[in-house]
Nucleic acid binder design. Structure first.
Lengths: 219, 219
DNA sequence: TACAGTAATCGACAAACTGTTGAATTTCCA
DNA sequence: TGGAAATTCAACAGTTTGTCGATTACTGTA
């Protein structure tokens, strides 16, 4: 276990993922089998319960082959996680483009924001991995990463200028509050099997921005 | 590694924690040393990075002694976690007693809810453990447990009757939204070193119930 | 088709950690 | 002080890890 040595792969694959860009079909086959075995085992026993040997057995891969692709299972997990986060960065422009006024316009028209629909579509696409990794035996650190990559930026862009320019302690909690709230919605949607359609979820997400428990006092 | 065997402790300690009720000072000393070593190591290397041997070395305890108190480090972690959750259940009555009307009354009087202050006081008391366990390398499953033990109940009691009696999908997301939001606030407070006083936090928590980004459109 | 390159397989290895055991030692308290 | 109980200590088998070298199988190309 020489932690300082750099990892040397015999294959020159760039991402370490089951990317379709792999020239050699052997690599693609191995990567795909490893990913599927990893997700199913992650779902069953949680990350720490996974053994490299068991993973390879399920993937019908020799244990030595695993080490041709990943330094260890932590690297494997983070590779997959980073792919998701990189994908989510593609929503960056759409997210920061959301102003509160535009949001209100869509809400009045009772139409879901297109980029929100696309976001939930993408999350559904990655549902099996996300369900496993966001679960109780998944990876503790991924929730916050997801929150920072999506939810926080979303809230920041919707915050009105008054709050954006006054970084008081309260505003920081304000952002943490709503960012965590949306992570909670996403997590619940994924954990409960993504019953609702992406359009429904987009609508729910928008509606939650205009309701709060305090105003219910008027009812 | 015979997982099916029941754990037999040579000491008849009941909680496994560093409780002051331990008659034998040897047990109390060992439990205290183990807990302190555990928290500091949890902070430094994360739960999975902890080795029983290293833990005992830091606690100045023989490795065999560890197994007189805990089956394994997972049991140790859960013992400590369950202590916190049990303590938080003492707030149960205070939580469910919070009605929206009373909350509004306190808010108008600009006074923090006493039970909220007590809650943050207790969290600060357990700050070192919570900081370690809620951190990125802590325990993924504890956040949701904390959320369910405190935040969800809090929101449920504040929800007005209209929502309480209509468990539509939206209401479930509504609860998940605000429960996660408050967990986020608590987590941020702990992660940033609990700068604000318990009174400040109670006020912030109350204020967040009466503000939402959507209403800012009127400003 | 044959060949060179490279990925996958296989067996073996030292190292680390785990959880247990039995005997010796120390500490406690009645 | 003496018995009970907690701690110490050394040793143990069993897993898992990450690495290595030699061999086999596959792939794309000349």
């Amino acid at each position: 276990m020489t932690a300082t040595l750099e990892h040397i792969t015999t294959c020159d694959c760039e991402t370490g993922a089951a990317s379709a860009a792999s020239q050699d079909p052997r690599i693609a086959r191995t990567q795909l089998a490893l990913r599927e075995a990893f997700v199913s085992l992650l779902e069953e026993k949680g990350f720490e319960g996974i053994t490299v040997g068991e993973l390879c057995a399920r993937a019908n891969i020799n244990r030595g082959t695993f080490y041709n692709h990943f330094r260890d299972k932590e690297t494997m997990l983070h590779t997959y996680e980073d792919e998701i986060l990189a994908d989510l960065n593609r929503f960056q422009k759409a997210i920061t483009g959301v102003g509160l006024r535009e949001l209100v316009r869509f809400r009045i028209a009772k139409r879901p924001l297109p980029f929100l629909v696309e976001l939930f579509d993408y999350l559904r696409e990655q549902g099996s991995f996300l369900h496993a990794v966001l679960g109780p035996k998944g990876d503790a650190s991924f929730g916050p990463k997801l929150r920072d990559a999506v939810c926080s930026k979303l809230i920041m862009s919707v915050l009105n200028e008054h709050y954006q320019n006054n970084p008081t302690p309260f505003v920081n909690y304000y952002v943490a509050f709503y960012a965590s709230a949306y992570l909670g919605v996403i997590t619940r949607w994924i954990e409960t099997g993504m019953q609702e359609s992406s359009e429904e979820m987009a609508r729910i997400a928008m509606r939650l921005l205009f309701i709060n428990p305090g105003e219910a006092i008027t009812l």
